[in-house]
């Protein structure tokens, strides 16, 4: 791998990396401050029930935000790709004695490294926060962190591919946004379907369920059980999809470097 090209990549992404790391440590700092306040400060005086809920939520919030922040800052080269086209570097790079395979390998390797570092740092953060909160790390949070890291990772890879296609960050982000909204719509439809399934199962109408708190709780539990099943499947499949995404990304970039301008 050409060190010069890797140096160029790191140099151009420098600000993004620094921002990500600063946010990462700021999150840890804020989390620790809140936790210290809960142990020794004003928050220690709150009601025990609320304290327990707050304790749990702080752990979850901080461990779930971190993977997203890290992936967004350590992965992706959409700005570099767009400016490569704008400055003429993409055309210039076709005059270098570098094969398409070598070019696409270093670009993919940078993305994979960013993803792995984000995942490792997220895990460290997870164990650290749960240790600070005095809670035991359960498999659900570990799975959730993996799922969030992979989801954001896939989104970044997808966006990178779109920038190669459209050569502009804004266009790529609009298209990526449409896909994200579509995914949200699908999740909402699935939720609605599971609510409908529950109504069929218990033989009550929506109005009847709304009037009976027990039925509402029962329905919520039913939906959670469906979501848990889907969640488990997603966690099992997501890392595989992530690997496939990187392979597709590599093949796509290789095609970009092999394919001549029309």
């Amino acid at each position: 791998m050409r060190k010069g090209l890797v140096y160029r990549e790191i140099f151009l992404n420098k600000k993004k990396y620094i921002t990500g790391i600063v946010i990462y440590f700021s999150l840890i700092f804020v989390g620790v401050l809140i936790r210290m306040s809960m142990n020794f400060g004003n928050l220690a005086k709150i009601d025990e029930e609320i304290f327990k809920i707050l304790d749990k939520y702080i752990c979850y919030i901080f461990t779930m935000i971190t993977p997203a922040v890290l992936v967004l800052s350590l992965m992706g080269r959409h700005n570099i790709t767009a400016s490569d086209y704008k400055t003429g570097w993409q055309k210039f790079s076709h005059t270098f004695p570098i094969s398409a395979v070598e070019n696409s390998l270093y670009i993919t390797a940078m993305s994979v490294c960013g993803f792995i570092i984000a995942l490792v740092l997220s895990m460290i953060n997870l164990f650290m926060f749960f240790a600070i909160c005095g809670q035991k790390v359960n498999t659900f949070v570990v799975k959730a962190v993996i799922l969030i890291t992979c989801s954001f990772g896939m989104m970044i890879v997808f966006e990178d591919i779109l920038v190669y296609i459209f050569k502009k960050v804004t266009t790529a982000q609009i298209v990526a946004g449409i896909f994200v909204v579509s995914a949200d719509v699908i999740v909402t439809l699935l939720l609605a379907k599971s609510m409908k399934d529950y109504m069929k199962k218990v033989g009550h109408t929506a109005e009847e369920i709304n009037e009976d708190i027990n039925l509402v709780n029962d329905m919520t539990n039913y939906i959670i059980s469906v979501a848990k099943k889907t969640f488990d499947i997603c966690v099992a499949v997501m890392p595989l999809i992530m690997v496939v995404a990187f392979v597709v990304f590599y093949l796509f970039v290789r095609r970009v470097f092999r394919r001549r301008e029309k």
């Binding site: 151009l12 400016s83 003429g88 055309k91 210039f92 005059t95 270098f96």
Partner: peptide, 14 residues
């Protein structure tokens, strides 16, 4: 390409 150099009308660097 190892033995040629190309100069474009604009500097293709960031």
């Amino acid at each position: 390409k190892e033995n040629i150099a190309v100069v474009f009308d604009e500097l293709p660097m960031h």
